[in-house]
Write a protein that binds this DNA or RNA. Sequence first.
DNA 1: AAGGTTGACAACCGCAGGAGA
DNA 2: TTCTCCTGCGGTTGTCAACCT
Length: 266
Amino acid sequence: MGRQPCCDKLGVKKGPWTVEEDKKLVNFILTHGQCCWRAIPKLAGLCRCGKSCRLRWTNYLRPDLKRGLLNEDEEQLVIDLHARLGNRWSKIAARLPGRTDNEIKNHWNTHIKKKLIKMGIDPITHEPLHKEASTPQDLCHANDQRDHHVEVTRQNSPKVDDHHVSSSDNSNAPTGNPSTADQSLRWSNPGDDDLLMSYIWSETFVDDSFWNLSGTRSESCSNFGLPSSEDNSEWLLNSCKDFGEEFGLGLFSEMDMNSLDMGGKH
DNA sequence: AAGGTTGACAACCGCAGGAGA
DNA sequence: TTCTCCTGCGGTTGTCAACCT
Protein backbone atom coordinates (compact mmCIF):
# COMPACT_ATOMS: atom_id res chain seq x y z
CA MET A 1 0.00 0.00 0.00
CA GLY A 2 1.31 3.38 -0.93
CA ARG A 3 2.02 6.02 1.50
CA GLN A 4 -0.81 8.40 2.23
CA PRO A 5 -0.10 11.87 0.97
CA CYS A 6 0.52 14.46 3.62
CA CYS A 7 -2.55 16.32 2.54
CA ASP A 8 -5.34 16.35 0.04
CA LYS A 9 -4.02 17.80 -3.13
CA LEU A 10 -7.34 19.47 -3.79
CA GLY A 11 -8.32 22.52 -1.86
CA VAL A 12 -4.96 22.92 -0.20
CA LYS A 13 -3.34 26.26 -0.68
CA LYS A 14 0.29 26.48 -1.65
CA GLY A 15 2.77 29.23 -2.03
CA PRO A 16 3.58 32.21 0.10
CA TRP A 17 1.80 32.67 3.38
CA THR A 18 -0.31 35.72 4.03
CA VAL A 19 -0.32 37.72 7.24
CA GLU A 20 -3.78 36.43 8.00
CA GLU A 21 -2.63 32.85 7.71
CA ASP A 22 0.38 33.56 9.88
CA LYS A 23 -1.82 35.08 12.52
CA LYS A 24 -4.16 32.11 12.50
CA LEU A 25 -1.31 29.68 12.83
CA VAL A 26 0.50 31.55 15.58
CA ASN A 27 -2.72 32.11 17.41
CA PHE A 28 -3.67 28.46 17.25
CA ILE A 29 -0.31 27.07 18.24
CA LEU A 30 0.08 29.37 21.19
CA THR A 31 -3.45 28.63 22.27
CA HIS A 32 -3.45 24.89 21.79
CA GLY A 33 0.17 23.93 21.37
CA GLN A 34 1.74 21.88 18.65
CA CYS A 35 -0.66 18.99 19.05
CA CYS A 36 -0.81 17.28 15.70
CA TRP A 37 0.38 19.03 12.61
CA ARG A 38 -2.03 17.20 10.39
CA ALA A 39 -4.96 18.42 12.42
CA ILE A 40 -3.75 21.96 12.94
CA PRO A 41 -4.72 23.46 9.59
CA LYS A 42 -8.28 22.27 9.91
CA LEU A 43 -8.60 23.35 13.50
CA ALA A 44 -6.93 26.67 12.83
CA GLY A 45 -9.06 27.34 9.79
CA LEU A 46 -6.23 27.17 7.32
CA CYS A 47 -6.40 25.74 3.83
CA ARG A 48 -2.88 24.37 4.17
CA CYS A 49 -1.46 20.96 4.76
CA GLY A 50 0.03 20.20 8.14
CA LYS A 51 3.44 19.91 6.72
CA SER A 52 3.26 23.40 5.33
CA CYS A 53 2.11 24.70 8.71
CA ARG A 54 4.95 22.96 10.49
CA LEU A 55 7.47 24.38 8.06
CA ARG A 56 6.05 27.85 8.36
CA TRP A 57 6.16 27.68 12.12
CA THR A 58 9.61 26.19 12.49
CA ASN A 59 11.25 28.25 9.79
CA TYR A 60 9.58 31.56 10.17
CA LEU A 61 7.04 32.11 12.91
CA ARG A 62 8.76 30.56 15.89
CA PRO A 63 9.27 33.34 18.40
CA ASP A 64 12.82 32.38 19.25
CA LEU A 65 14.16 32.78 15.76
CA LYS A 66 16.96 35.15 15.05
CA ARG A 67 16.62 37.15 11.91
CA GLY A 68 19.07 38.58 9.49
CA LEU A 69 22.24 37.23 8.03
CA LEU A 70 24.52 34.94 9.93
CA ASN A 71 27.35 36.83 11.51
CA GLU A 72 30.97 35.91 11.04
CA ASP A 73 31.18 33.75 14.12
CA GLU A 74 28.09 31.86 13.13
CA GLU A 75 29.46 31.36 9.65
CA GLN A 76 32.69 29.95 11.00
CA LEU A 77 30.75 27.66 13.26
CA VAL A 78 28.64 26.47 10.35
CA ILE A 79 31.77 25.81 8.30
CA ASP A 80 33.35 23.87 11.10
CA LEU A 81 30.24 21.88 11.85
CA HIS A 82 29.72 21.18 8.18
CA ALA A 83 33.24 19.83 7.96
CA ARG A 84 32.37 17.45 10.77
CA LEU A 85 28.76 16.65 10.04
CA GLY A 86 28.31 17.20 6.33
CA ASN A 87 24.91 18.28 5.07
CA ARG A 88 23.16 17.47 8.31
CA TRP A 89 21.62 20.85 8.50
CA SER A 90 19.32 20.06 11.37
CA LYS A 91 22.23 18.99 13.51
CA ILE A 92 24.17 22.07 12.53
CA ALA A 93 21.16 24.24 13.20
CA ALA A 94 20.73 22.66 16.61
CA ARG A 95 24.04 24.21 17.56
CA LEU A 96 23.20 27.66 16.33
CA PRO A 97 20.63 29.22 18.59
CA GLY A 98 17.75 30.84 16.81
CA ARG A 99 18.74 29.55 13.41
CA THR A 100 16.83 27.01 11.37
CA ASP A 101 18.20 24.24 9.24
CA ASN A 102 16.55 25.79 6.23
CA GLU A 103 18.13 29.13 6.91
CA ILE A 104 21.56 27.63 7.37
CA LYS A 105 21.16 25.48 4.29
CA ASN A 106 20.18 28.49 2.23
CA HIS A 107 22.99 30.57 3.64
CA TRP A 108 25.42 27.79 2.91
CA ASN A 109 24.30 27.46 -0.67
CA THR A 110 24.18 31.15 -1.42
CA HIS A 111 27.02 32.58 0.61
CA ILE A 112 29.40 30.21 2.31
CA LYS A 113 29.78 27.83 -0.58
CA LYS A 114 30.91 30.60 -2.87
CA LYS A 115 33.10 32.06 -0.19
CA LEU A 116 34.90 28.76 0.31
CA ILE A 117 35.32 28.21 -3.40
CA LYS A 118 36.71 31.70 -3.70
CA MET A 119 39.14 30.84 -0.93
CA GLY A 120 40.15 27.72 -2.80
CA ILE A 121 38.42 25.31 -0.47
CA ASP A 122 36.17 22.55 -1.64
CA PRO A 123 32.88 23.18 0.14
CA ILE A 124 32.10 19.48 0.16
CA THR A 125 35.34 17.99 1.36
CA HIS A 126 36.73 21.11 2.99
CA GLU A 127 40.01 20.26 1.33
CA PRO A 128 41.95 22.72 -0.83
CA LEU A 129 40.79 22.91 -4.42
CA HIS A 130 44.08 22.08 -6.11
CA LYS A 131 42.62 22.23 -9.58
CA GLU A 132 40.99 25.56 -9.12
CA ALA A 133 43.91 27.11 -7.33
CA SER A 134 46.04 27.46 -10.40
CA THR A 135 49.01 29.23 -8.95
CA PRO A 136 51.16 28.47 -5.94
CA GLN A 137 50.14 31.82 -4.55
CA ASP A 138 46.51 30.82 -4.83
CA LEU A 139 47.17 27.56 -3.06
CA CYS A 140 49.16 29.24 -0.39
CA HIS A 141 46.49 31.82 0.07
CA ALA A 142 43.80 29.19 0.16
CA ASN A 143 45.62 27.20 2.78
CA ASP A 144 46.28 30.27 4.83
CA GLN A 145 42.65 31.13 4.73
CA ARG A 146 41.68 27.61 5.60
CA ASP A 147 44.10 27.45 8.47
CA HIS A 148 42.77 30.73 9.62
CA HIS A 149 39.19 29.61 9.58
CA VAL A 150 39.99 26.36 11.33
CA GLU A 151 41.89 28.25 13.95
CA VAL A 152 39.11 30.72 14.43
CA THR A 153 36.67 27.87 14.71
CA ARG A 154 38.81 26.14 17.27
CA GLN A 155 38.84 29.28 19.29
CA ASN A 156 35.13 29.74 18.94
CA SER A 157 33.91 26.24 19.42
CA PRO A 158 34.49 25.79 23.13
CA LYS A 159 32.59 28.94 23.90
CA VAL A 160 29.75 28.63 21.56
CA ASP A 161 27.58 29.93 24.34
CA ASP A 162 28.69 33.31 23.20
CA HIS A 163 26.52 32.83 20.17
CA HIS A 164 23.38 32.39 22.08
CA VAL A 165 20.53 34.65 21.36
CA SER A 166 20.47 37.76 23.35
CA SER A 167 17.13 39.24 24.02
CA SER A 168 18.04 42.32 22.06
CA ASP A 169 18.68 40.19 19.04
CA ASN A 170 15.13 39.04 18.90
CA SER A 171 13.66 41.59 16.66
CA ASN A 172 10.35 39.84 16.41
CA ALA A 173 9.15 40.74 19.81
CA PRO A 174 5.67 42.07 20.09
CA THR A 175 6.44 45.71 20.11
CA GLY A 176 3.45 47.46 18.82
CA ASN A 177 1.27 47.89 15.83
CA PRO A 178 3.52 49.05 13.04
CA SER A 179 1.28 48.83 10.09
CA THR A 180 -2.25 49.29 9.01
CA ALA A 181 -1.53 48.07 5.53
CA ASP A 182 -3.79 45.62 3.79
CA GLN A 183 -3.42 42.51 5.86
CA SER A 184 -4.06 40.21 2.97
CA LEU A 185 -1.02 41.42 1.18
CA ARG A 186 2.08 39.38 1.41
CA TRP A 187 4.99 41.04 3.14
CA SER A 188 7.51 40.28 0.51
CA ASN A 189 10.12 42.86 1.35
CA PRO A 190 12.66 41.28 3.65
CA GLY A 191 13.00 44.58 5.40
CA ASP A 192 9.39 44.27 6.41
CA ASP A 193 9.93 41.04 8.26
CA ASP A 194 10.32 42.69 11.59
CA LEU A 195 7.25 44.75 11.01
CA LEU A 196 5.40 41.68 9.94
CA MET A 197 6.34 39.72 13.00
CA SER A 198 5.58 42.63 15.26
CA TYR A 199 2.26 42.98 13.59
CA ILE A 200 1.38 39.31 13.84
CA TRP A 201 2.38 39.03 17.43
CA SER A 202 0.95 42.32 18.55
CA GLU A 203 -2.33 42.07 16.70
CA THR A 204 -2.89 38.55 17.76
CA PHE A 205 -1.95 38.64 21.37
CA VAL A 206 -1.32 42.06 22.75
CA ASP A 207 -4.64 43.49 21.74
CA ASP A 208 -6.46 40.51 23.14
CA SER A 209 -4.69 40.85 26.43
CA PHE A 210 -3.33 37.48 25.50
CA TRP A 211 0.04 38.07 26.97
CA ASN A 212 0.71 38.21 30.61
CA LEU A 213 4.43 37.89 30.77
CA SER A 214 5.58 37.53 34.28
CA GLY A 215 9.20 36.79 34.70
CA THR A 216 11.62 35.36 32.25
CA ARG A 217 12.65 31.77 32.24
CA SER A 218 15.31 32.25 29.70
CA GLU A 219 16.50 34.92 27.41
CA SER A 220 15.50 33.07 24.33
CA CYS A 221 11.89 32.89 25.38
CA SER A 222 11.64 36.30 26.84
CA ASN A 223 9.29 37.29 24.10
CA PHE A 224 6.71 34.83 25.23
CA GLY A 225 3.77 35.74 27.26
CA LEU A 226 1.80 33.20 29.17
CA PRO A 227 -1.65 32.27 28.00
CA SER A 228 -4.19 32.06 30.69
CA SER A 229 -5.19 28.43 30.64
CA GLU A 230 -3.20 25.87 32.51
CA ASP A 231 -2.55 23.78 29.48
CA ASN A 232 -1.24 26.67 27.54
CA SER A 233 0.90 27.79 30.37
CA GLU A 234 2.30 24.34 30.66
CA TRP A 235 3.02 24.20 27.00
CA LEU A 236 4.64 27.56 26.98
CA LEU A 237 6.67 26.82 30.05
CA ASN A 238 7.79 23.60 28.46
CA SER A 239 8.53 25.43 25.28
CA CYS A 240 10.54 28.02 27.09
CA LYS A 241 12.34 25.30 28.93
CA ASP A 242 13.01 23.52 25.70
CA PHE A 243 14.21 26.68 24.09
CA GLY A 244 16.45 27.32 27.01
CA GLU A 245 17.85 23.86 26.92
CA GLU A 246 18.12 23.69 23.22
CA PHE A 247 19.37 27.11 22.42
CA GLY A 248 20.66 28.72 25.42
CA LEU A 249 21.74 27.57 28.72
CA GLY A 250 24.77 25.44 29.05
CA LEU A 251 24.29 24.04 25.66
CA PHE A 252 27.92 23.51 24.99
CA SER A 253 29.31 23.56 28.42
CA GLU A 254 29.83 19.84 28.49
CA MET A 255 29.67 19.16 24.85
CA ASP A 256 32.60 17.47 23.34
CA MET A 257 32.71 18.34 19.69
CA ASN A 258 34.07 14.88 19.04
CA SER A 259 30.92 13.42 20.44
CA LEU A 260 28.83 14.93 17.68
CA ASP A 261 26.80 12.34 15.95
CA MET A 262 28.88 11.32 12.98
CA GLY A 263 27.11 8.15 12.11
CA GLY A 264 23.88 7.15 10.50
CA LYS A 265 22.02 8.80 7.72
CA HIS A 266 20.88 11.79 9.65
C1' DA B 1 11.79 52.45 -19.43
C1' DA B 2 11.62 47.67 -20.56
C1' DG B 3 13.19 43.17 -20.64
C1' DG B 4 16.48 39.77 -19.10
C1' DT B 5 19.46 37.83 -15.54
C1' DT B 6 20.94 36.86 -10.99
C1' DG B 7 20.74 36.24 -6.06
C1' DA B 8 18.44 35.27 -1.89
C1' DC B 9 15.21 33.04 0.59
C1' DA B 10 10.67 30.89 1.39
C1' DA B 11 8.26 26.90 0.49
C1' DC B 12 7.47 22.30 -1.42
C1' DC B 13 8.52 17.39 -2.32
C1' DG B 14 9.64 12.87 -1.32
C1' DC B 15 11.95 9.75 1.61
C1' DA B 16 13.33 7.78 6.12
C1' DG B 17 12.75 6.79 10.86
C1' DG B 18 10.21 6.43 15.15
C1' DA B 19 6.11 5.34 17.64
C1' DG B 20 2.01 3.08 18.44
C1' DA B 21 -1.71 -0.17 17.33
C1' DT C 1 6.35 -8.57 13.29
C1' DT C 2 3.87 -5.73 10.29
C1' DC C 3 1.38 -1.82 9.10
C1' DT C 4 0.07 2.93 9.39
C1' DC C 5 0.59 7.53 10.81
C1' DC C 6 3.24 11.45 11.95
C1' DT C 7 7.24 14.09 12.00
C1' DG C 8 11.84 15.42 10.64
C1' DC C 9 15.24 15.90 7.21
C1' DG C 10 17.71 17.23 3.03
C1' DG C 11 17.29 18.37 -1.74
C1' DT C 12 14.99 21.02 -4.99
C1' DT C 13 11.95 24.42 -6.88
C1' DG C 14 9.39 28.77 -6.99
C1' DT C 15 9.05 33.56 -6.25
C1' DC C 16 10.42 38.11 -6.12
C1' DA C 17 13.45 42.00 -5.65
C1' DA C 18 17.70 43.93 -7.22
C1' DC C 19 20.74 44.55 -10.70
C1' DC C 20 22.29 44.75 -15.47
C1' DT C 21 22.01 45.67 -20.41
